[in-house]
Amino acid sequence: MSLPLLVVIALDPEHLARLEAGGFELHVAVNNPKLIETVGPEVRAVLTNGSTGLSAEQIAGLPKLEVICALGAGYENIDLAAAAARGVVVTNGPGVNNASVADHAMMLMMAIARGVVQADAAVRRGEWAQSRQMRPSISGKKLGILGLGSIGEQIAQRAGLGFGMEIGYHSRKPREAASGLYFPSPVALAQWSDFLVVATPGGAATAGLVDAAVLDALGVEGFLVNIARGSVVNTDALIDAVEHGRIAGAALDVVEGEPTVPSSLLKQRNVIFTPHIAGRSPEAVLATVQLALDNLQAHFDGRPVLTPIKQP
Rank of each mutant, 00 (worst) to 15 (best):
V225P: 13
A129H: 14
I145S: 01
Q191D: 06
T91C: 15
V187W: 02
M106Q: 09
A204Y: 05
I138S: 06
N98F: 09
V101P: 15
A199K: 10
S185E: 00
V116K: 04
G162K: 09
R175H: 11
I145V: 11
I155Y: 00
G95K: 12
A113W: 00
H104R: 03
P94Q: 09
L218S: 05
V88Y: 11
T200E: 03
V225C: 05
Q130K: 12
G140P: 14
A122R: 14
S137A: 11
V96I: 08
V198A: 04
V117N: 09
E221Q: 15
A205R: 15
M110H: 05
K142D: 00
F195G: 00
M165W: 07
V117Y: 14
G160P: 03
P184V: 00
W128F: 14
R158C: 04
P201E: 01
L189G: 01
G95C: 12
S100C: 08
G208F: 02
I112E: 11
V187R: 11
Q191Y: 00
N98W: 02
R86L: 12
Y182P: 06
V89A: 13
Q130I: 02
A156N: 10
Y182R: 11
M106I: 15
G152M: 06
G202A: 03
R175Y: 03
L218P: 01
L218M: 07
G162A: 08
D216Q: 15
F163I: 10
S100F: 03
K173Q: 13
L181V: 12
R86Y: 11
P184A: 00
M110Y: 05
P201K: 08
V210L: 03
S137E: 13
R172N: 08
V101W: 04
